[in-house]
Design a protein around this nucleic acid. Structure first.
Lengths: 147, 147
DNA sequence: ACAGATGATAGGCATCTGCTTACGATCGGC
DNA sequence: GCCGATCGTAAGCAGATGCCTATCATCTGT
């Protein structure tokens, strides 16, 4: 009865996302990172040099109380720094160390290379539109997706 | 240093998939279905009228031992049927009942309608390429994604 | 100065998920 | 007719996740 036989978006997106995550794992393992650890490195890599832990957690979609252990691990390994904020002694300002930036870029490059190999299977004509659209949808606030 | 500033595919795909799943929940709840239940109805809706439980589990990416409870629930509600296979008395042949087909289509329509509203935000020029590519990637065997 | 809000942290809980084992019934190849 | 493999089922385990509470330190508005 449907005019259009495609599967539900989520039915395609979720398993594909799982598969992509699984494909990333070797690259993460090679650097001793968990998915959340990598997520934190990505979250700290953006423009602003420092963030508070709550803001970071909100950004990467993690629970405020659950990234603490992740941050502990990353700090122990010297990938991030927790500095006291002179302006507000409650918060810890987070930033990547040079080593953190290095690891982040190494993992990122490995993942990106694998992705490019996958995207090579997609007709060049569709690729840009696909990435553009995916990026647009992914950056929509969730309320707009929930409708 | 990257020539291209887009986020990792998985970093876009996974949260987007989660958001889409969350958006589907009201439609599922309205019919008393879980995600797995709906998954089963979708898996049974395809061309072949009957399937074995293991084959179904494999298809929808579920654990063989974990969909049993789901199937029990769906059967109790009269949405699916488990019929003995005369040719192989070990297996249960699964099929949708008329009611199952009805519920499946109702949920599907609700979900599809929400999705179309979301896709309406995407430039028409990109939409077809996006869906085509997503479908192509989603139907790749996982080994090809793992590389 | 005081009350209420916010940040980091610890701890626990209920749930889900993937995985493994075990068991009885049955099929298939030899 | 026997042995190994397959199917459905039950049960359990380890890990991850979201959520909630409590605590202490600190900030902010009044």
């Amino acid at each position: 009865m449907s005019t259009d036989g495609r599967p539900d978006l989520a039915a395609m997106m979720v398993p594909l996302g799982r598969a992509l995550m699984a494909a990333e794992r070797p690259a993460l393992d090679a650097h001793g990172l968990t998915m959340w650890g990598y997520s934190v490195l990505l979250g700290l890599g953006g423009g602003e040099p420092v963030r508070t832990q709550s803001a970071l957690a909100r950004d990467i979609g993690a629970d405020k109380t659950r990234i603490i252990g992740v941050l502990d691990g990353l700090q122990e390994r010297g990938l991030i720094e927790r500095a006291p904020d002179p302006a507000d002694r409650r918060v810890h300002l987070l930033s990547l160390t040079a080593e953190g930036r290095r690891v982040r870029e190494a993992v990122r490059a490995a993942i990106r290379e694998r992705e490019e190999r996958l995207l090579a299977r997609v007709p060049a004509a569709d690729r840009a539109a696909f990435l553009r659209t995916l990026q647009a949808l992914a950056s929509l606030p969730r309320e707009e997706i929930a409708g």
